[in-house]
């Protein structure tokens, strides 16, 4: 554990030193504030609007931006050390490969969680200041759920980035692979599901399968956690149509997101054990 924490601490400090944490926080805060303020501009209004619509917009924003940033900060976790020549040195230390990977995973996840809490937190505080009527326990619970699930989503993509980083032999290839994974999970996956839904006009089999297919994508699990409670009214009709009215247990959704956090990292560990340096 000592080695894991030593490495995690270094990665976390590097995040601040390289201004990654600050930059990501600023990006999250700017985008979240922008969406909260200008989110209703299509309906002819500017300014902070309903809580549900704002949370739905933040969820949609998070589902695009958090995976991308997670992959960007962690795609070179292992291959970057290898390219830079430091991996050989580190692995010659009394340190297991699992400890090295776990330390890096924890460190990157902590950087991301800090940026999510700070970045989205700034937007939430601004929203709450401007909209005193939504200072309710339900709203704070929803915000807490959003920030916690967003951090878990970030960690799951850090795990995926670790896997990419172990499998790729070059940094450039890892970067390309990371973008491909982002495109497949953020854009392609839902498009394919929607296309199938539209073409088949939602028969019974699909209605039975689709709610579970959504679990195969951590981004959809994140959206389900945050959007199911809001209902169709917050502009989520298209996404929720894929859930076909299925009633999800929140514990199952968190379990799925936790599995998405641990499974890619476990695969990364396995691949790292056999990687030749």
């Amino acid at each position: 554990m000592h080695n894991i924490l030593t490495i995690a601490r270094k990665e976390f400090r590097d995040g601040f030193r390289n201004r990654w944490t600050l930059a990501i926080t600023a990006i999250f805060a700017a985008l979240a504030l922008g969406i909260a303020y200008f989110g209703a501009v299509t309906s002819g209004r500017v300014g902070f609007t309903s809580f549900g619509a704002t949370l739905a917009s933040l969820t949609t924003l998070g589902s695009f931006v958090i995976p991308l940033i997670s992959l960007l900060i962690a795609y070179d976790t292992i291959v970057g050390e290898d390219d830079g020549g430091t991996l050989q040195l580190l692995l010659a230390y009394p340190l297991s490969r699992a400890e090295l990977a776990a330390g890096k995973f924890l460190g990157h996840s902590a950087v991301l969680a800090t940026a999510i809490v700070a970045g989205f937190g700034i937007a939430v505080v601004a929203y709450e200041v401007m909209m005193p009527e939504v200072r309710t326990l339900a709203a704070w619970t929803a915000i807490g759920t959003f920030i916690f699930s967003a951090s878990l989503l970030g960690a799951s993509f850090v795990g995926l980035a670790c896997l990419i980083s172990v499998l790729a032999r070059e940094k450039a290839r890892a970067a390309g692979l990371a973008l491909l994974v982002w495109f497949a999970l953020v854009v392609l996956f839902d498009l394919v599901l929607l296309a199938v839904l539209v073409i088949s006009r939602g028969n019974d089999i699909e209605r039975a399968i689709f709610p579970y297919l959504l679990m195969l994508n951590p981004i959809d699990v994140f959206r389900l956690i945050n959007l199911v409670g809001l209902g169709n009214g917050a502009g989520n009709a298209v996404f929720l149509a894929m859930a076909a009215g299925h009633v999800y247990q929140i514990g199952v959704l968190y379990g799925a997101l936790a599995a998405w956090t641990l499974a890619p990292f476990a695969l990364a560990l396995r691949a790292f054990q056999t990687r030749e340096i």
Partner: peptide, 9 residues
């Protein structure tokens, strides 16, 4: 190691 490398930052 040959061509020892460290963290430049």
């Amino acid at each position: 190691p040959e061509n020892v490398a460290f963290y430049g930052n």
